[in-house]
Design a protein around this nucleic acid. Structure first.
Lengths: 108, 108
DNA sequence: CAGGATCCTTTACGATACTG
DNA sequence: CAGTATCGTAAAGGATCCTG
């Protein structure tokens, strides 16, 4: 059986944000795209060395669906694809700043 | 085999914050404790109806270990226990505010 | 009332081989 | 190069029963 009624806390903005950028990697990826104008998959792999290729691709796909990231296919061969932060995605900057601030003040 | 070297991105404040308040429930719990002075387990269950008892207790324990939440045992019988936000925990307010803001501006 | 213990399902994540 | 497909493990989360 499912838990209690969900209506009460259902459309909570915290949960919305968690769905959009929750998990281990999405904010890390967004951070890189915010500070780099455009990045290729191979470049992201280098910037985030401990992410698995599967997760990187999977999260990029999710972020694109959420319109937080754009994917530019240059249609060249060998394949050349670029990822860019969107306008909506750039708002994550404030969130990241706060997380950095929270971590810093926690460590005092 | 583990992935690539972790040293590069290891002590990243984003990851620190994720470790402290990541997951589905910690921020929701902190939010309630921030806006309620003191809450008992049974009250938290009502305020967050769709959390399982196991998760609620487990997350409160983790938050206490991280010193984001205090647990007050009144030593009465029947048992009476209160949970309060700590000073460190109260800093999560800014984080929550930003998450709310992010969700709002996303939904435009 | 608060919470421990247990069992189970689901989701997140990772390693690796393969393809246009 | 930028993926897809597949398989496996680990962690998160949930239901239920039990206890002082």
């Amino acid at each position: 059986m499912k838990n209690k009624p969900i209506e009460v806390t259902a459309r909570c903005p915290i949960r919305t944000t968690l769905e959009l950028v929750g998990g281990k990697w999405k904010l890390i990826i967004l951070q890189q795209l915010i500070s780099h104008e455009e990045l290729r998959l191979s470049e992201l792999k280098i910037l985030i060395p401990d992410i698995s290729e599967k997760m990187l691709i999977q999260e990029l796909k999710t972020l694109k669906i959420s319109d937080l990231v754009n994917r530019i296919n240059y249609g060249e061969v060998p394949p050349r694809v670029g990822y860019r932060i969107t306008e909506k995605g750039r708002n994550a900057q404030f969130l990241i700043d706060e997380m950095v601030h929270f971590a810093r003040s926690y460590e005092e």
